[in-house]
Simulated assay, not measured.
Amino acid sequence: MKLIKFFLSACFLILLHGCGVVDQYGGRILDGNLNAQEALNQETLLNIVRASQFQSANFMAVAKVTGGQTQSLATGLPTISIGPQQTAADGVYKITNSVTSGVSAGYESNPLLSTTFQNAMLSPVSVRTVAQLVAVKPREAVLLILLDGFTVTLPNGRRVLLKNDPSMDGIDCAAKIARDDLSRLYLPNADCSYSRFAKLLQDLVGNGLSAELVAAPGDKVVAGGAPGRFCYEPSVAGENFQMQATREFKNICGSNAPTTQKNTLEYGSVGLIKVDFIMRSPIGVVSYLGQYLRDPNTPFKGYWSQPAKNLLGKDHRYLNVVSDRTTGCYTSLTYLGRFYCVPASSTHTAMLMDIVQVLRNLSIEPTDLNTSFTLRVAN
């Protein structure tokens, strides 16, 4: 009987130990976070690569990620023979144990193909989104990637389109842009359009161009959130522009000026001009980045403000994607036999990719995450 009690006590302790194991899930949550972000980074880089080759983009939504770990311990009690005429084998008591452990993971994903998502990706970015991004990232970097161009109305009523398209520049644009404001703005529309756009953007940023969210009167709740507007912030204007920004611009950030305004300014020898902002769509942003990847010689005028300059570091390329496998990568992939890597040190390119991801996420509706597909099997 003592022997039986001993075996029962041992089995009870083993079972208690098995039940007392607490699942340590923190590491798996971290892994899930890192994997989800890496999937998004690779999707962004892949679509930039596709855009560089004039291929269509594709976006996948991960609606759900699941994971679990199971552990079980099965302990068998020995067979005890009682009575006369026992053999030597009957006196050997065996306890059979089995320990099993398993880790499972799963995810649900579907292509973002809905009409709502496609419309959002093809629609110009709102000023509200510009204001939200400017609040957390260098304003010049945000404006350069989101602005598709300016429409400038000159004092004589003529309209000039200045496109944020580096391919529209020629080899003699540096000399033409060095002219005074009057000669520069009165050039033909397609002549050095990008250089003139970059110069005007530099002047506007130097004057403190920014964007902000406008609170509704009386703190009323506005459907879709507070609207945004372009404004000028004298405190971040360049030293040579500080007084000009305060004196000539009426829509100062934080003022009670209306949301819809005429962005007019005295532009050197030209006189009073009106500037209208043309915004890109999220797909337009991807195509813009693809242009820099497609042609390594794509001109980049550089940033004017110091916070944006600091992002570039020692590498002054606008989009830094290399094919060197020995470089530590922020993200990387192989597509059509070619290796693409965003160096881990390229904080500027990582920021550009983050802006693309924000625009993508803002375009997704809840119904886009629950798209179901019917599979029909034919004999």
Rank of each mutant, 00 (worst) to 15 (best):
P124N: 00
M351K: 10
K2V: 13
R28M: 15
F230R: 01
V342N: 03
Q306C: 05
A39I: 13
A89L: 09
R28Y: 15
C11Q: 06
V22S: 09
S183K: 10
Q55R: 11
S56Q: 12
L293W: 05
P155G: 01
C253S: 07
F12R: 07
A245H: 05
L293H: 01
S183T: 09
S346W: 01
G284C: 00
F59A: 08
M351I: 07
P307T: 01
I364A: 02
L77R: 01
P227D: 06
T116I: 10
G271M: 01
C11D: 04
S72R: 07
G18P: 03
S372P: 04
Q291T: 04
N58Q: 14
V214D: 07
Y340Q: 15
L3E: 11
A10Q: 10
G149P: 03
Q85G: 14
M353P: 04
G313M: 02
A74S: 07
V130R: 00
D172C: 12
P188W: 11
I273H: 03
L46C: 11
L147Y: 00
Y303S: 04
S210A: 05
E140D: 03
K262N: 12
G271Q: 03
K94I: 12
G218P: 04
F59I: 10
I95D: 05
K250G: 13
E212C: 02
N164Y: 01
S126C: 05
N251E: 11
M168K: 14
S81A: 09
S56E: 14
G238Y: 09
L362H: 07
F197T: 01
S346C: 08
T79D: 12
N97P: 10
G313I: 01
P166G: 02
V99K: 08
I80G: 04
R159I: 12
D368I: 08
C192I: 04
G106N: 15
Y292H: 11
L209Q: 00
Y318G: 05
M353G: 05
L73F: 08
T331E: 04
Q261P: 09
S210Q: 03
Q118F: 13
F117W: 07
